[in-house]
Write a protein that binds this DNA or RNA. Sequence first.
DNA 1: AGCACGCCGACT
DNA 2: GTCGGCGTGCTC
Length: 823
Amino acid sequence: MADRESFADIILPVPLKQDFTYRIPAYLVNDISPGKRVVVQFGVRKLITGIVREVHNRKPDRAEIRDIISILDETPVLTPKQINFWDWMADYYMCSTGEVLKSALPAGLKLESESYIIADNAFNLEDIGDKRLKALFSNILRNPGISVKEFLKIRENQNLLGSLRQLIDMGAIRLEEVLRERARIKRVLFVRLKKTQLTAKERDKILIDLSKAPKQSEAMQEIFRLSEIQEGVITRKEIPFTALTRKYGNTTVNSLINKNLIDRISREDLTYNYLTKELALPEKLSQLQQEVLDLINEKFVRKDVVLLHGVTSSGKTEIYIHLIKEVIERGQQVLYLLPEIALTVQIIKRLKRIFGDSTGIYHSRFSDPERIGIYKQTAGKDGKLLKVILGARSAIFLPFRNLGLVIIDEEHETSYKQFDPAPRYNARDAAIKLAMIHGAKVLLGTATPSIESYSNWLSGKYDKVELNERFGQIMLPEILVSDLREARKKRTMISVFSPLLITEIKNALNRGKQVILFQNRRGFSSFVECDECGWIPRCRTCDVSLTYHKYNNSLVCHYCGFSRVIPAACDNCGSKSVVTRGFGTELIEEEISLIFPGVRVSRLDMDTSRQKGSQERIIEDFANQKIDVLVGTQMISKGLDFDDVSVVGIINADQMINYPDFRAYERSFQLMEQVSGRAGRKDIRGKVIIQTSDPGNPLIQHVRNYDYKSMFAEQIRERKLFMYPPFVRMIKISLRHKDISKLEGFSNILKENLKAVFGKRVYGPQAPIVGKISNYHIKDIILKIEKKASFERARKLLREILSETVIKGGFQTGKITIDVDPF
DNA sequence: AGCACGCCGACT
DNA sequence: GTCGGCGTGCTC
């Protein structure tokens, strides 16, 4: 080995921009390579895992360089393409590579040490003079091998760190860093024939030998049956151990093992990856679908990104399936992204039925071992290479070996954007970058394109294919508008329902059809108010009114979690008439069962689907006609196909349209069109009833006419006028401080410094809608950078100004977050 | 982000 | 006197 010292630049999971250079001890030099995980000491004692970026001989110019403690991987967990992708993400979304690491790796691959208290048994308790320390030490002796965290917990988090320090100084105890145990991977047992292949002759001999043990012979025949038989030759296959023991008993199977006929092996439990034994062929495409598929392939020759604009229920998924098939037949991998809420059992089953075990599912509801399994198999480890990955936004971080196609379904969905913590990335945009790194193609699918993607087509950056017919010529539902103002004036409202909606619900139920009611707000009501003086209970530490939750009769702050029981009387005037205002899904559900007694009504929102499997259960019950009316938030708008829904009611369209955000208009259109798409199937034309106080609103007309183009034209005019995307790129800088005057002072200094460079591109500082959260006051500054200007340069300048201003402006106690392309 | 250190006010 | 709150600085 070379006599020069070796070093490695390590990416550590901390929000610091640089890598950290450690020395590679001689005994590790041959094993280390970029992309592997290593254990290093960081700070005073903490041990953490980092990722090797580069191995080199350049000795850093600093006094202390620590050694790498150990290498965790035999083969890299990270490909060079991933490191490239991480760097891009950190740069574009203005965070550290370490923060990307935190989001990107499944939890089980990120180890952190914990401190354990080790008592010196030789130490004499009586040597401690201080009574308190003595008590503490004897407490430690009673809890051998306890972690500091645990110990603090049993001592009810009293601040004992100082006292522990004293005990360490006198030599009574010491702390030991222990890496948290790796995520335990479940293993399952299999048996298989001892020999790889058996001829018919060998098989018969075995059975003759076993003739005196009928039970064993029977089991052996079963094993033959479950193996692969071709022209009399038996090729061994792995057969679940428990399946055999259950049938033939433990001793029988063990005897076969002892007779050296079969082997028992243990494998990682990959049950989540097996499913269908029999694979189905993709459905035959309609002529129109086939034309669209051909067109997409044609467009891919010239453009890397194609937008598939297809109305709801036009059979986009089937087109995806055919496209996926083509790509994997070329030996490449496919990433199929869906918003979390659309990743339902329905779509998973559909894909697994076609692509079987080569399909991997990756999203937050899966356990850590499962995710690690998918992670490894995306790279082709564990003896298996996944071809199709169906996943939510974090699936973009998987170690693809040879990505050929990325499908981003429901590309307009806002949930592709990660809000907190950093990196605040948009998985749609990041996936396009990922595809570029791999030289892969991208298909964006949606019934209601985002304004950004549609204008990217107009500008020639993307290409576009349209699909304007629903599959099987089902008609788009008829959309009716119900004027709430008029109904209120005439006093014909029944609770929150207009007479038109009530009539349509009644008709549908009488015909044995189902109803979906959409309200994009969960809970019972949004807040309570004193009818006498107008007093509204608010959160003490956040600048919001408290939300009423009926099930536990409490008022809750949705920002910090503070809750109190609902007051019997007004805090302000003492009046007993404290009433609820606004409403959510919970109230609608209750009203329906009051107005239509005996009707089976259920609710699908975050509150009812928090438990694992409950979402699936509700959807299944509705699909199986066990529910008549389903009330839901936007969760019901995605990827669900029901055959017997004839009426969809949008309870309050104004709430969406008037939301103070520049995307509210676009978003309302998308939501209403998507929800409408749930109505009408085989035989009947569905009906959608939109309740609004503003029936003349052009947006309502566009929704009615399924007129995307007019909506787009109108919206793009406004975006241009008021300088919003896609004409500019925005960066939101959020400043938070407990001291409002410090916050105001600093935000003004920052604004001035930014203006000196960015001029009129700086907007704010302005308090957001919720101006205070958990006692932290908030101010936002927005930068709007024109499309034609260099965004890279803008980010660089911003970084410089920020670090300079923070140091000079005394804002070290404040918090700053940066959100690029915010929502 | 954690974590340790060090400086000040509130209690036994 | 000491506890513990929080501001400050550092991490190869």
